[in-house]
Amino acid sequence: MPERSPTAPPPSFVWTRRIVLTLLTVFSLLPVYVMLSSSLKPLRDVTGAFRWIPEHLTVRPYVDIWRTIPLGRYFVNSIVVASAATGLSVVVAIFAAYAVSRYRFRGKRVFTITVLSTQMFPGILFLLPLFLLYVGIGNATGIALYGSRGGLILTYLTFSLPFSIWMLVGYFDSIPRGLDEAALVDGCGPLRALFRVIVPASLPGIVAVAIYAFMTAWSEVLFASVMTNDTTRTLAIGLRAYATETDVYWNQVMAASLVVSVPVVAGFLLLQRYLVAGLTAGAVK
């Protein structure tokens, strides 16, 4: 990042910076602190008035939550759905991005614009028809999409597709054409050139796209609330349902929230620098 000036900033600026950034840090981390500290409190300490410093520490909530609600099953569902959606979405995006980056063809602009604009539609608009479509397909062919993990995977893989294609096109464009042209001359087919040359060279971009797709699927609420039943419920819906009941073991809910956050927060911290790089490339274009 370019530095603003070679001279040190004046005290007024330094103090504004200190105060504003401190306030923002408190604002950002407050829920994280509440989540962590409450997850270590026994039940009687979270039913009374809130305490900043926990008086008694316990790890029981982390053990008990698996029995209070079927958290294990939610976990399996979320992992299966998010992983499958991520894998498929990445493969589909690699093919599409390869076509857009390396070939000229009629309808290329229409394709990219259409795909990107689907990102902007309100989810509620196609929730109802998609629900009926899945029910209809189920009635007509016996393929259970509604209420199954398959339907959810199919839905989620398209959610991350636009961003993934857009980002991968940028990555593929930055790889010199000479590399895959050389492979073609050596007798590779276009697909082998893609998987032997382009994919290995753009691995960071592919990892970033995969993390993004996983996070999208892991956190989705709207479609999961309609498309799942008791056995296919994901973490998002299972936890929400429990947290809005009248008598909630808040310490256990906080423990569960922390557990479900760890995989994606870790992923995001890895992704962060690719994301900034990708956005910068996009902004320059």
């Binding site: 973490l235 809005t244 808040w250």
Partner: peptide, 21 residues
Amino acid sequence: AVFLTPYALPLYASVIVWAFM
């Protein structure tokens, strides 16, 4: 990293924490 944390947390998990708060 601290400032990006709210964005990195799964939405439902952090909203549940806010509901508790």
